[in-house]
Structure formats: C-alpha cells, structure tokens
Design a protein around this nucleic acid. Structure first.
Lengths: 171, 171
DNA sequence: TTTCGATTGTTGACTCGTCAAGCATATGCG
DNA sequence: CGCATATGCTTGACGAGTCAACAATCGAAA
C-alpha cells in the first residue's frame, strides 16, 4: 500500500471535479426549467415519476431508499404534493405502520405534462453529451458505485443500523 | 424531429438515474467521513482545497463560479471557515469591491489533514469503480456537459444576465 | 466630471431536507 | 402471553445554501 499519493492524476481529478460540477449545473438547470414550465421542483417531479413507474403507488420507505432521501424528507415532499392534490396517502392494510403514497388522476396528468419538460431537459443537458457506448459506460460505472456505497455499513438512510463498526479503511 | 419519445432507453435511463443516485450516495458518505474524521463539511473542505490549488487566496466571485455556488453561499461558507480560523478575508487593493478569501496557516494544516480523508474517500467511493479508460470517458463527457450548460444563457450563477431569451427548445 | 449601468459582496427572509425524538405497530424469544 | 427490540412514519429544531434587495465600487460614455 505505497500508493497513498497526496494528489490525483489529471484524469482522476477531472473525472471527480467534473462529476461534481456536472451534477450541480445539470440539476440546477433542470430544476429551474421544471419550475418555470411545469410548476414543479425536480425533487417533486422525481417522486411523481417514481410512483408512475411503480404502477401508481409505493410505500414511503421504499421511495426514500430509491431516491436516496431520508424518511423525513419523503414525508415532507409528499406532504407538498398532497397539498397540490397530486398525491394521496393511503394506509397499508397489511402493515399498520405503513403508508402508501398514491398518484391521483391530477397527479398522473401533471406527471405527463411535466415529463415532456423533464425529458427535453435530460436529453439536452445530459444525454446529448455522450454516445451510446459512453452511456453504457456511465451506467456501468455508476451502478458499481451505488452498489458498493449502499452496502457499505451504516448509511445515512439506515441510521439505526449498527453504529459504523468499521468503514474498512484500506489498511 | 420525430424522436420525441416519451421515455428513455434502458441505457439512457440507467445512466441518468445512476448519475443522480451515485452523486447522492457518494457525496453523502464522503461528507459524513469528512465530518467524522476531520470535522469539516464537504463544502467547506472543497473551498480549502480550491484555495490551496489556487495558491492560497482567491476572489469570492471566482470561488462561486468554480464551485457552482451563489455569491451568498460563498459568503456564508467562508464566514464559517473564518470563524474556525482557517481562512481570513482580505480586501482587494486593485478593486474596492473585491474580497479575497485567503488560507491561514491553520487553514493549510487543516487542509493537509483533511486531504488524507478526502482522497481516501474519493478513491474508495468513486475512482475505484472505473478503469483509467473509463475515467477519461467520464472526464470528457462531464466536460462537455458543463461547458454546454455553463454557457447556456442565464444560469443561476448569473441571475442578472439577459432574462433567458430562449433555451433553444429543439424546435 | 457627471452619470448610468454593470459587478462585487453581504444580509434578511425563505425553502428544502436532515437529524433526532417520539409514537405506533410488528416481530421474535422467554 | 409479555417483554424487548426493530421498523415506519411524523414532527420540532436546525443547518445549509438560495433568492432578492441593498450598498459600495468600478468603468465607460457623454
């Protein structure tokens, strides 16, 4: 383990800082477009989209896991969407603790309208900058990162799991 | 322009959602590690790092541009770092409006200590998941995105520029 | 020089999501 | 069953950064 160099190579550095900058710029712009043209924040739209691709309803905790939010965060976003009439809460008959977030018909319509803006933005800001082969590379690399990071001991989504017994430092 | 499909292909979808998930998971974990092991938030560390690689001092506005923050945001992060004794403000002799954020010696020391944690995290959470060739691809793709998005009319960092005369919708 | 528009940085008000405490329910074990 | 522990969701308090308004300064043109 002699490779504890104190700085990154050029390709490492530009991949990492590009990652941060691209995320900030792209999501910022996409959020602005969505707000202007559809009246919805990106985080709100993401939940409508998630519910749509899940068939219309989903448990709060699963939304949190999939969108990398805390439980409290989902409660609050869903509350906003509920106030807009786009979502309703349903209690889960199988589990008295559980709550479903479910699209209303207005919610479906809103998703459809916003989806146009969203897709246009994702294509223009993100997809347009990579070839098909490059997209596959991105997908593969991101998948590896998320799989590894998700299972890396106690994560922020899992605060009550064992108190970080070890983050397997490379030593 | 008949390709206004209402959904993404599998490779498009997993690249995009992977991008969002990877960013959320990786930065969250890195921020937690940095706080636990160095007592610094990721955003704070990023400014120390930026100042270091800029030779020790930098104008507020340039920090904001490079790190994709608003001016107000930089003011607040720098204020925190100043309170910690890691940074000091210097007025710019050439421009009475300007303010430099400058590393103190304690700031340099703190950067050095935190840099170990930061590098270990970036390597483990991000770099380890891509080959050299893949890193080059990421760098190239992200660069294209940021170049395009930065110059795409009024961005959030440039609120007083012409009021979004057109976002060149594909029409 | 005066004047007007652009730029720089700061600040109060606000939004968004996290954190942690709390309550309700579920599940496993004696 | 009765108790301990784990999970699901909500909520008050808070942290972090944006937004918009503002004051100060710069620069250029009349």
């Amino acid at each position: 383990m002699a490779r504890a160099s104190l700085h990154l190579s050029e390709s490492e550095g530009s991949a990492w800082s590009g990652f941060l900058r691209a995320h900030a710029l792209v999501t910022r712009r996409l959020d602005a477009d969505l707000r202007a043209d559809a009246g919805l924040a990106l985080s709100e739209f993401e939940i409508l989209l998630h519910l749509t691709s899940a068939g219309g309803e989903r448990r709060m905790a699963l939304i949190a896991r999939d969108l990398v939010l805390t439980g409290g965060g989902v409660t609050r976003i869903v509350a906003r969407l509920e106030k807009l009439g786009l979502i309703e809460r349903r209690s889960c008959p199988k589990d008295g603790r559980g709550v479903f977030a479910a699209l209303t018909s207005r919610g479906r319509a809103k998703h459809l309208a916003a989806q146009k803006v969203h897709l246009e933005g994702v294509r223009r800001l993100f997809l347009a900058h990579a070839s098909e082969a490059e997209l596959k590379t991105l997908g593969r690399v991101f998948r590896s990162m998320t799989d590894a990071t998700e299972h890396e001991g106690a994560c922020a989504l899992n605060p009550r799991a064992s108190a970080r017994p070890g983050r397997n430092h490379a030593g």
